[in-house]
C-alpha cells in the first residue's frame, strides 16, 4: 500500500469519525459565528463591519482553528501517548497528510457555512468572481491547517497547550492571514485591478512551503513524542 493510498485511508477515517458525530465542525461553526457577533458588538459603527468583513472572517477561522487543531490529536492520545500512532500500519507522513487534509476539509466546511451568514450579518455586497473566492477559501483553509496540524501534535503533548498553540500559530500564519483577508476583500469588492490572483499566488506559495516542510518534519516529531 503506497503512501498516497495510506493518506486517503487516514483522511477517510478522519472524515468518517467527523461524519458520525460532527462535534468539531459544529463546535467550530458556532465558535466562528460567535466571533462574528462579538466583533460586531465591539465595533463603533456598522459601516466598519462591511470594510472589515474579509479580515473578520479569517480571524474567526484562525481562532476557531487554534481551538481545534490539538483536538484532532486528542482522540489518538486518550489511551496513552503519541507513540501509539507509530503502531498504525501506515507511514507517519501519511498520518500527517491525512490529518491535515481532514482539517482543511473541516475548516472549509465551516467557511462555506459561515460565509453567507457573514454576508447577511455584515451587509456585504458580493460583486466579485465566486470561483476566485472559492480558490482563496480553499487555499486559506489549507494554509491554516498545515502548520496547525503539526503544532497541534506538539502542543497536545505540552504543558499549557491552550495558550501555546495560538502563540505558535499566529505569527507563523501572518502571511496567510494577510493574503486571505485582503484576497477575500478585493474579490468581494469586485477586484477591477485583479489583485486577487496575486494574493492567491502568495497563498499557494505559503501552502507549498508549509505543506512540504511540515510533512518532512512530522515523522521526527512523532518518533520523539
Amino acid at each position: 500500500m503506497n503512501v498516497i493510498r495510506q493518506t486517503f485511508e487516514v483522511l477517510r477515517k478522519e472524515l468518517l469519525v467527523e461524519w458520525r458525530s460532527p462535534a468539531r465542525v459544529s463546535g467550530l461553526f458556532f465558535f466562528a459565528l460567535a466571533m462574528l457577533l462579538m466583533v460586531a458588538f465591539a465595533s463603533p459603527t456598522e459601516g466598519i463591519l462591511r470594510t472589515q468583513a474579509g479580515g473578520t472572517l479569517w480571524i474567526s477561522l484562525l481562532l476557531a482553528s487554534t481551538r481545534s487543531m490539538d483536538q484532532s490529536w486528542s482522540t489518538e492520545m486518550e489511551h496513552g501517548a503519541a507513540e501509539g500512532m507509530l503502531l498504525w500500519p501506515v507511514e507517519p507522513v501519511a498520518i500527517y497528510y491525512g490529518k491535515a487534509l481532514a482539517n482543511t476539509a473541516i475548516l472549509l466546511a465551516v467557511t462555506v457555512a459561515i460565509f453567507p451568514l457573514m454576508v447577511g450579518l455584515y451587509d456585504v455586497p458580493v460583486r466579485g468572481d465566486l470561483s476566485m473566492l472559492a480558490a482563496i477559501a480553499v487555499m486559506g483553509c489549507a494554509a491554516l491547517a498545515a502548520p496547525g496540524t503539526l503544532y497541534g501534535l506538539i502542543t497536545a503533548q505540552a504543558r499549557g497547550a491552550s495558550v501555546l498553540l495560538p502563540l505558535l500559530m499566529f505569527p507563523l500564519v501572518v502571511p496567510a492571514l494577510l493574503a486571505a483577508s485582503r484576497g477575500t476583500m478585493v474579490v468581494i469588492e469586485g477586484d477591477p485591478m485583479l489583485q486577487g490572483s496575486s494574493w492567491l499566488s502568495l497563498l499557494v506559495a505559503f501552502n507549498a512551503i508549509h505543506w512540504s516542510l511540515s510533512g518532512l518534519f512530522f515523522g521526527r516529531v512523532l518518533e520523539d513524542g
Partner: peptide, 30 residues
C-alpha cells in the same frame, strides 16, 4: 513546555526551521 530533553530539542528545531523560513514570506506579504 516540556521536561524531556529530546522532545524539547526536536520541537524547538522544527519550530525554528518553520519560523526562519517564514521570515522572507512575511516580509513579502507585508
Amino acid at each position: 513546555a516540556t521536561q524531556s530533553p529530546e522532545k524539547r530539542a526536536t520541537w524547538s528545531a522544527v519550530a525554528t526551521v518553520l519560523a526562519f523560513v517564514n521570515v522572507p514570506v512575511t516580509y513579502m506579504s507585508v
